[in-house]
């Protein structure tokens, strides 16, 4: 207990120090406005990847409409701040609640079924959300919702990304998290062991959807403009790519995937025209190769942890025994 507390304090101190350092670098202009924008994008993408990973990696359900939940959060929170003059934080929290509610509406009937149904339904849901937004003049329909105030700053992003990471860690290591993992390994066996598979799946799905909606709220108040096409199936596959590259079922892997795939295209700007032109082609080949040779992604279901870094020179810590595949 004592040891855990000490570790926790060290972690908090490190996070605070990193934040102060980054803030200092931004104020001094060493991290420029351009880099700051990329960092903010990375933060949003990390939250998205974490949320999808909870659904795919830990609950074992394939969701293909993640961008739709992001859209729900983005639009709902933007309506609250822009049209109803609510402050930023309550607005994005309401956005997240709306996303969670949407997740419940889809998940409650569908997650009772076994098989690929969730993938199909979330896909359909993604299309429905897009079409509905395109029909609502109140939020600008296809022309997009503009005039949203800028609220998402580096400070908020830093705070929320860290909180999202902690939340996911907490959920995964809780009783419910163990239920989710049990269900993802073998639903029938888990049920035989007395796990309420439906409840575990639904809980994971709702939390994932709410987090995606939360990220959507951050996105809307950072870009100041949202349009329905930005939340289409391509966006959902982009988030899926983060998770797959990083390692399905690995929290730090999702972070790594989101960071790499957000920073890389920016880093390649200017040179590497070939890579940029064929980016999507390269991504798709990469996913196929990953799925065949290393379906567990870069990190697999291993986690990068502080304790491990301090104990040995070894970077990776294998938790819960080695297990290949995403199961």
């Amino acid at each position: 207990m004592q040891k855990n507390m000490k570790k926790g304090i060290i972690k908090i101190v490190i996070v605070v120090l990193v934040f102060i350092l980054a803030k200092f670098l931004i104020r001094e202009g060493i991290i420029g406005a351009y880099t700051e924008r990329i960092i903010i994008t990375v933060g949003i993408n990390i939250i998205l990847a974490l949320s999808l990973n909870l659904i795919i990696g830990y609950t074992g359900q394939l969701a293909l409409g993640h961008a739709a939940f992001m859209a729900v959060g983005a639009y709902v929170s933007a309506i609250f701040t822009t049209k109803l003059n609510l402050p930023f934080v309550p607005a994005i929290i309401l956005g997240a609640v709306a996303g969670g509610a949407a997740g419940f509406l889809i998940g409650w009937p569908i997650l009772r079924l076994k098989g690929d149904y969730l993938a199909i339904c979330t896909l359909g849901f993604g299309e429905i959300v897009k079409v509905l937004i395109q029909n609502i003049e109140y939020v600008g329909a296809a022309r997009g919702f503009s005039g949203i105030k800028l609220f998402t700053t580096f400070g908020w992003i830093f705070l929320f990304t860290v909180l999202a990471y902690i939340l996911i860690k907490r959920v995964v290591n809780s009783v419910y998290g163990r239920d989710m993992r049990a269900v993802s390994q073998d639903e029938i066996a888990a049920e035989a062991m007395g796990v309420n598979a439906f409840r575990a799946k639904l809980l994971g799905f709702i939390i994932g959807c709410a987090m995606a909606a939360f990220a959507g709220g951050l996105y809307a108040h950072y870009l100041m403009f949202i349009d329905p096409v930005s939340f289409d199936f391509n966006k959902s596959t982009e988030i899926l790519t983060f998770v797959v590259l990083g390692g399905i079922g690995s929290t730090s892997g999702s972070v790594a995937g989101a960071v790499i795939l957000t920073v890389l295209p920016e880093a390649l700007r200017g040179f590497g025209d070939f890579i940029k032109t064929y980016r999507m082609l390269i991504y798709s080949i990469m996913i196929v190769i990953l799925m065949i040779f290393r379906p567990q992604g870069i990190m697999g279901n291993r986690e990068l942890s502080l304790q491990n870094l301090m104990k040995k020179g070894n970077t990776f810590n294998i938790k819960g025994g080695e297990k290949d595949g995403i199961a």
Binding site: L62, L240, M280, L281, S284, I287, V288
Partner: peptide, 30 residues
């Protein structure tokens, strides 16, 4: 793409199929 994954969980196959669809689209687009 699919044969090596025949005994993998359905989710792996599904993701591969999505990747193949991206691949074909972007290949024809070149």
């Amino acid at each position: 793409a699919y044969k090596p994954l025949r005994n993998s969980p359905p989710i792996t196959l599904f993701i591969t199929a999505i990747a193949i669809s991206m691949l074909l689209k972007n290949l024809v687009k070149t």
